[in-house]
Design a binder for these strands. Structure first.
Lengths: 341, 341
DNA sequence: AACGTTATCGGCAACGTTCCCGGTAACGTT
DNA sequence: AACGTTACCGGGAACGTTGCCGATAACGTT
């Protein structure tokens, strides 16, 4: 069933069928109706490959996500997928694990010819402009805070929260309650990832409240996984370090950390308050419920593809959006108990 | 940069270049090397659309998933994506919400021309053979238990656990501890979904243990979401019904249900044991940890694409796999307290 | 020496579209 | 009546591949 068949069936030329299919003018209402009718009755579907070939552009937009294990991304993927579909595009998803050059070069570059645009989700924050060069289609970084300005701001589209500021607010919350010995659980401190941005916010908040950061109070899980978070927290908790609160860079990690705390004899929030950032739906159902900075994931997904499509379809250029997180108070934060010493 | 350019650059014909690109014989080692070299140095990538057009088959396999909110699917999506990539195919993901005909017809049918195969994740269990007819490419249903035999077994590939039997085992576990009044939380009872399969296992287990099922003890959430699960459980718990244990068809729902139970004054497992099925990594970190029937999600994902690719590449025909779940004991189950009356 | 074989290679049609360009008929306009 | 305009339509090249078929040269084989 090709356009040629339809043409023959209607007694018109291929060109005419093409015109009605693509909703172009210069075709009489009668013919248009007739063609439409046979198209429907034969339920003919234009061959996408042929279309792409001749127009040299497709309807595919890529979603490359790093670290699918992070449940926060599941939420975002969901809305990104929904929005891409709604706009009539096709989403092709690609997961990457770690090696960052996969992004700039191989995996994507290979597909590039087919893609109209790309949304990056959860990549590290230190793409260099150089790495990004091979990408010639529009792209937007979702959940990517360009605060460090590593990327020239006029060449990057992104939507995110201000990770540093968000962490700052969270930690300040703890300080306001009187906490002075505040531990942190991060995924890593050596790259310019979301983890480090939030870590810096933590440091800044401590300093602004006159607290000297202590090396011994920051646990590094090495990844965003619950398993690693549990292990790292356990290590911290059994290390003899004294702290009355913890700042944790992600909800999922916080949930694991809370278990680690309790497994080592500390009750949350009585013995240790916990505040996190992400705002998973899930963390309203744990015990205790999590006090956390909610990222507007719905909005982040929507805006990401809106911006991307604006670029793809030439309606607008680069744009970056910094969204405001919202503190959701749960049961994991309380004032510190009176110091024992 | 087309195949023609490469040909010109090498001083050979287009055919020859095509031959070396596709790793076909009938080309001298010298020429092959030369072509390969220029291909690399120009980093030429064959135009996929043209390929697909002429060969009339692509490298895309579809993943259509219903209910992305279910965190169990996140795990599976992850491994499915990984495996599809590894095999050199491209994954295009499509979410659907509810209306089942989207599956059989529209969304897929539209894309069909491009897809080599499809893996369905989380669709309802009552596709009719009729609905499936329009799908002409190989497909496999992941996490789909065809126990009801609604589909002719020789026309369907699937990989799943035996949902009924799994629920049966879970509930039997409760019975063995002495529980007699066992409530159930399901997503729905009216369709032939996973929810109903598990629900039937629950009923069967009760009967086999001489317990008369009670309408009043089954709560229907209406979906797999935590929100609905919480609401339904709360309703059940505040309804005056007496029960010492709950069987819940999904981990995520169980987590929400536990909160509902505790919010209405019942402690888990002291006042009410909870057993679920899924086996999310997450549920090892909640408090209490969840006793649950673990689905081998890793294996399910792997086998799904293995089966699919076997069909696509003509290595094998339909195949169905029923995997064995594993009971993971957590802290949410205990013997019933002595009856009060 | 004539012939079959084999190893290499190029030509060319085809895949299903889109889109430019040119053509025809019908209809004013002067 | 000759001309320009408009509305509609078809022809055909092009998009970048693949794969069939035929061509050539080199090499045995009888």
């Amino acid at each position: 069933m090709t356009i040629k068949d339809i043409a023959r069936l209607c007694g018109v030329s291929v060109s005419t069928v093409s015109r009605v299919i693509n909703d172009r003018p210069d075709v009489s209402p009668a013919v248009r109706a007739a063609v439409l009718e046979t198209v429907r009755s034969c339920n003919y579907i234009p061959n996408n490959s042929a279309r792409v070939l001749v127009r040299s552009n497709s309807d595919a937009v890529g979603l490359v996500v790093r670290g699918v294990s992070n449940p926060f991304y599941s939420d975002i993927i969901k809305v990104i997928g929904r929005e891409i579909d709604a706009a009539g595009y096709t989403m092709v998803m690609q997961q990457i694990n770690s090696s960052a050059d996969e992004i700039g070069t191989g995996a994507i570059m290979e597909r590039e010819k087919k893609l109209r645009g790309i949304v990056f989700l959860g990549g590290r924050s230190d793409y260099t402009a150089e790495e990004l060069r091979p990408i010639t289609v529009p792209f937007v970084c979702c959940s990517y805070d360009n605060s460090f300005g590593v990327l020239p701001r006029d060449r990057l589209s992104s939507v995110s929260i201000d990770d540093g500021q968000t962490a700052y607010r969270a930690v300040s919350e703890l300080c306001a309650l009187g906490h002075r010995r505040i531990a942190a659980l991060v995924a890593g401190t050596d790259d310019r990832s979301i983890s480090e941005l939030r870590y810096h916010g933590y440091l800044r908040a401590l300093k602004d409240h006159g607290i000297e950061p202590e090396e011994a109070l920051v646990a590094c899980a090495g990844s965003f996984s619950m398993e690693d978070a549990y292990r790292a927290t356990r290590l911290l908790a059994s290390g003899g370090a004294e702290f009355t609160a913890m700042f944790i860079i992600a909800d999922a990690m916080a949930i694991a950390a809370i278990k680690a705390l309790e497994d080592t004899g500390r009750e949350v929030p009585r013995d240790c308050s916990v505040i996190a950032v992400d705002g998973l739906a899930l963390s309203q159902y744990t015990r205790p419920t999590l006090t956390t900075m909610c990222q507007p994931s719905e909005r982040m997904g929507e805006e990401s593809v809106r911006i991307l499509l604006d670029m793809i379809e030439g309606r607008a250029g680069n744009r970056s959006l910094v969204l405001e997180p919202l503190l959701r108070s749960g049961g994991s934060v309380a004032p510190p108990r009176r110091a024992r010493d």
